[in-house]
């Protein structure tokens, strides 16, 4: 895939080389390849289209400085635009509550339970907080157990109520428990749910209303394809979440879903997950993500060759 893309862009950039300025005609092929690169990276169809249109508008008529090849200029425009879209500076997490309540949400298997543990560990070790993990997934087999194992690994207390079938009540009881036991952070893990599952979306909406979290995080698998926009939009409509967590970035996915989600809900991506271990958490860097989506390492090196 990488080679293919490089070859294509190489060809496309060759067309631009030797022209004094970028015109509708000479840029067309390059834009087609950029759009294709975005689609191969799983950027949503409509967003990829919009993106290339914006890039074209920015590029048209720009004179190519003597030091810059037209191809280089295009790469710069694409990268700048992508970075800007991915969000400015890394945004932190709001810890102003007493206790601070953080609600996890997302599809099945996206990495909510693992990330709950990672975040608790991060806040405990890096911010000297005293977190409480709360098990509100009453559906998935052994979900409560999983959170307990995670809690044990990082030395963080886990609140659960075996047999209680009401996640709203569990989350409320957990906050009472946190208050009377000196926890200043409460992280509520929830069951995975599909955006089209009305009953389950109502449930998380009710949890959200009942506990009024300072931070609601939408956890999404970075390998997600075109559907990322639908899911992100519905979760955002219902929860108006504060930030996004992008998991499993230790894989080799390009992660175009990040751009799609950012474009659709315009919420900051706050953290990334980079492994299964509790330490595998990092803050989000927009420019690195932009590089990743376009395989910019390749593109830059090929422009240098040109």
């Amino acid at each position: 895939m990488f080679n293919n893309l490089s070859d294509k862009l190489d060809k496309a950039l060759h067309v631009l080389k030797g022209h004094g300025s970028i015109t509708e005609v000479n840029v067309a092929e390059t834009l087609k390849e950029v759009r294709r690169a975005l689609l191969d990276a799983d950027v949503n169809f409509k967003i990829a289209k919009q993106f290339t249109t914006t890039v074209k508008e920015k590029a048209l008529g720009q004179n190519v400085l003597t030091t810059l090849q037209p191809g280089q200029l295009m790469v710069k425009i694409v990268k700048d635009e992508l970075t800007q879209l991915m969000g400015g500076d890394a945004e932190g997490i709001n810890l102003s509550g007493t206790p601070t309540v953080i609600l996890m949400s997302g599809l099945q298997g996206s990495g909510k339970t693992t990330f709950s543990g990672k975040l608790a560990n991060y806040l405990k070790t890096k911010k000297t907080k005293k977190p409480l993990l709360v098990a509100c997934d009453i559906y998935r087999p052994a979900a409560i157990n999983q959170l307990h194992v995670v809690g044990e690994q990082i030395g963080v207390e886990v609140y659960s109520e075996e047999g209680n079938q009401d996640p709203v009540a569990i989350s409320q009881n957990a906050i009472k428990h946190a208050k009377s036991n000196g926890h200043n952070i409460v992280i509520v893990d929830t069951a995975g749910r599909l955006a089209v599952d009305e009953e389950m979306m109502n449930e998380i909406s009710n949890i959200h209303k009942a506990i009024q979290p300072q931070e609601t995080l939408f956890v999404v698998d970075s390998m997600t394809g075109q559907d990322a926009v639908n899911t992100a939009k519905t979760f955002n409509d219902i929860l108006n979440f504060d930030g996004v967590v992008l998991t499993k970035l230790d894989g080799d996915t390009r992660g175009g879903a990040a751009l799609s989600i950012k474009s659709v809900v315009n919420k900051p991506i706050k953290f990334i997950g980079t492994g299964e271990k509790m330490e595998a958490i990092d803050v989000f860097y927009p420019d690195r993500m932009a590089d990743r989506i376009l395989g910019m390492g390749d593109v830059v090196s090929l422009v240098e060759r040109a």
């Binding site: 895939m1 191969d40 990276a41 799983d42 599809l107 298997g109 698998d221 390998m223 997600t224 394809g225 075109q226 559907d227 990322a228 899911t231 894989g251 080799d252 996915t253 390009r254 175009g256 879903a257």
Partner: peptide, 11 residues
Amino acid sequence: LDGSTGQNAFE
């Protein structure tokens, strides 16, 4: 394969 996975499923 997760049905919501995109092109990474190839790899």
